[in-house]
Design a binder for these strands. Structure first.
Length: 639
DNA sequence: CTAGGGTTAG
């Protein structure tokens, strides 16, 4: 067993206890008139949760050497916990230990819990070591404290000690300790142990299992646990919906949400947060708006409002985002960071910078992610000097060490400004290893500034770090082809074949009447495809009459050969946009989401189309947002 | 007296 802590020794040195005489006074009648009234008064204050009067009465009792019963002290301790009264709580602890009998395990557990709640783990441990009897609650309290502090090994070690001590864990213990499973093997082991002792039917244990399988990316296991349940509660539904939402399976999350409602459960804050996250991932602004209506019931919930804010930002609904942000009763660092990044992503970098200034005056400290957003805004607005300033001073001003993402923004910033050499220099100076994203950022800059040699170098780095990314191989092979380096073209194509890499076809989605319409290159299964093609042809004709020239030069673009010519007009985003213009009212923004990055021709096409039709078109590719308004794009032609 | 489910970048 563990060593006795200094704290425990101090506690043990309090006046000697007279064992075997529980509740010496309260239940044995008054010893004298004054003590009786004092005791009654104390009990009444505890019952009324009048902390300061209770403490006064307690000290008076201590001077007279009289003590109350365990239940009354427990009430007082709970009152201290509720008020966050640390010193008072400690003083009750001392009082109890100076009392003339051995405190009951129940009361000690209450004190133990108090220390855990006050985040005083050492005091809790000291008390735990001193306890003459530890029951399942004592063990669980400590184990749960270790888990929530991330001390997983200690938690598991204590589970073993508990079992060795002959104390049977209950479902409280298991639902806590499940969170401490570092790997899948351990999780499965614990899971089978839980089944053996027949505790898998508890809803808390179930949802802990679901959540932990999901955190390990084992969605099928999570779903199995869920499906095996006969009686489900809201928490379990929230676990499974959250599981899908967090593993970027928005469709399945929304599907489960529908099932949940059909099963008669009303969504709560946690449900709605996950549903919003799912809508965000799928860029379903309309679904998000519907959820917003439910959110109004919980309009003081910070996490939920943050999710709502993010949904509006990511789905291109900046007005919605602004209105949510301005109405929020309370804002934390996540609210500010979300809004700053959201403004920047939607092409409002100057507003983002202004908001950051406001944030600094608001008293909320920026964090790592906030600065990513700020640098992102600088790079999007071409604010080279500001970006460099924030980057160089972030450590000094905010105590944040620049990480990969910050370097990435700076590479983007320098690359966008054409300072490719400086961008490379920065990558070489990175304290952390550059990753595929870093090199891909440089690659984008090379593409825009037409630097083939550096592009080849960057693409090779990307391939090294992310060997399954088809787009990079194709980009590389196209660069070689453009430089007549046919042997290398063959070599790249060969290594793609060897690795079994095929480029996925371009696909774009648009939401019309709450339904998702998907357009895949070369797939004409959409029921209105003929009308759409006709409309698209007419549009191209009209655009050409005002100066649009289809751009077939795909050098430095990661497009397949066969996608270049005949299908140029039928790139999936063009079809989706045409469909959007045909079927959405003029005032509606046309929101497209696509799986591949937009090509230069579609980009030009969309800019001109937005102007000609006087429409706002938003295309969200896997990396960034393009807001097309009146002949220009928020990305500033850099992506 | 002890337990589960939610938010920001890449």
């Amino acid at each position: 067993m563990r060593a006795i802590s200094a704290r425990a020794k101090r506690i043990a040195s309090f006046p000697p206890s007279r064992h075997g005489r529980p509740t010496p006074i309260a239940s044995h009648g008054p010893t004298c008139p004054s003590s009786s009234s004092l005791l009654d008064e104390f009990a009444e204050h505890c019952h009324q949760r009048d902390l300061s009067r209770a403490m006064k009465a307690m000290h008076a009792m201590q001077r007279q050497g009289i003590w109350a019963d365990a239940i009354t002290y427990s009430e007082l301790v709970k009152c201290c916990v509720a008020r966050g009264a640390v010193e008072e709580g400690k003083s009750v602890h001392k009082h109890v230990f100076s009392c003339g009998y051995q405190p009951k395990t129940y009361l000690l557990n209450v004190l133990l819990n108090m220390y855990v709640r006050f985040n005083l783990l050492e005091d809790a441990e000291g008390l735990f070591d001193e306890m003459p009897d530890r029951n399942v609650v004592s063990w669980t309290t400590l184990i749960s404290a270790y888990v929530s502090k991330g001390m997983n090994n200690r938690a598991l070690e204590f589970l073993i000690l508990m079992l060795r001590g002959g104390v049977q864990p209950n479902m409280y213990t298991y639902s806590s300790v499940l969170r401490a499973c570092a790997d899948l093997g351990m999780l499965r082991q614990l899971h089978s142990g839980i089944i053996k002792v027949g505790m898998e039917s508890d809803v808390f244990v179930r949802s802990a299992l679901i959540d932990n399988y999901s955190k390990q990316g084992e969605l099928q296991d999570a779903l199995d646990v869920f499906n095996e349940m006969v009686t489900k509660d809201l928490g379990v539904w929230n676990s499974i919906i959250g599981a899908f939402a967090q593993n970027s399976n928005g469709d399945k999350a929304l599907e489960m949400y529908k099932c949940m409602k059909r099963a008669g459960f009303a969504p709560d804050q946690a449900t709605l947060t996950s549903v919003l996250r799912a809508s965000t991932a799928l860029a379903l602004l309309e679904v998000g708006r519907q959820v917003h209506v439910h959110v109004l019931k919980f309009d003081r919930d910070l996490i939920l409002n943050n999710a709502l804010l993010d949904m509006y930002c990511k789905c291109g609904g900046l007005e919605g985002a602004n209105s949510v942000f301005s109405r929020m009763a309370e804002r934390d660092v996540i609210s500010w960071s979300t809004m700053i990044a959201g403004l920047a992503q939607n092409g409002c970098s100057l507003e983002a910078m202004r908001l950051f200034e406001q944030m600094k005056h608001s008293g909320t400290e920026p964090n790592y992610i906030t600065i990513v957003g700020v640098l992102f805004a600088c790079s999007h607005a071409g604010l080279v000097e500001d970006g460099l300033h924030y980057f160089r001073s972030m450590k000094r001003s905010f105590g944040i060490d620049p990480g990969r993402e910050h370097y990435g923004c700076m590479v983007d910033l320098l690359g966008r400004a054409g300072k490719l050499d400086e961008a490379v220099k920065l990558i070489n100076e990175m304290e952390c290893e550059p990753d595929a994203v870093t090199w891909r950022t440089l690659l984008s800059a090379c593409r825009v500034h037409r630097n083939s040699d550096l592009a080849i170098y960057a693409a090779k780095q990307v391939v090294k770090l992310d060997p399954d990314d088809a787009g990079t191989y194709i980009l590389l092979s196209n660069i070689y082809a453009n430089n007549q380096r046919w042997e290398e073209v063959t070599e790249v194509r060969r290594s793609m074949r060897v690795r079994g890499i095929a480029k996925e076809p371009g696909c774009s989605w648009i939401e019309v009447n709450k339904k998702i319409h998907a357009f895949i290159l070369g797939d004409d299964s959409h029921p209105h495809i003929d009308g759409i093609n006709r409309h698209l042809n007419q549009t191209v004709q009209r655009l050409m009459s005002i100066g649009y020239v289809p751009d077939t030069n795909f050098v430095l673009q990661d497009l397949e050969d066969e996608q270049r010519e005949a299908s140029l007009q039928y790139h999936s985003e063009k079809l989706a946009i045409a469909y959007g213009i045909m079927s959405l009212p003029r005032e509606k923004t046309i929101m497209i989401r696509k799986n591949l990055r937009i090509c230069g021709d579609c980009h030009t096409f969309t800019k001109l189309l937005a102007k000609m039709e006087q429409r706002i078109i938003v295309i969200r590719d896997p990396v960034r947002y393009h807001h097309f308004t009146d002949g220009a794009c928020s990305c500033g032609d850099f992506w």
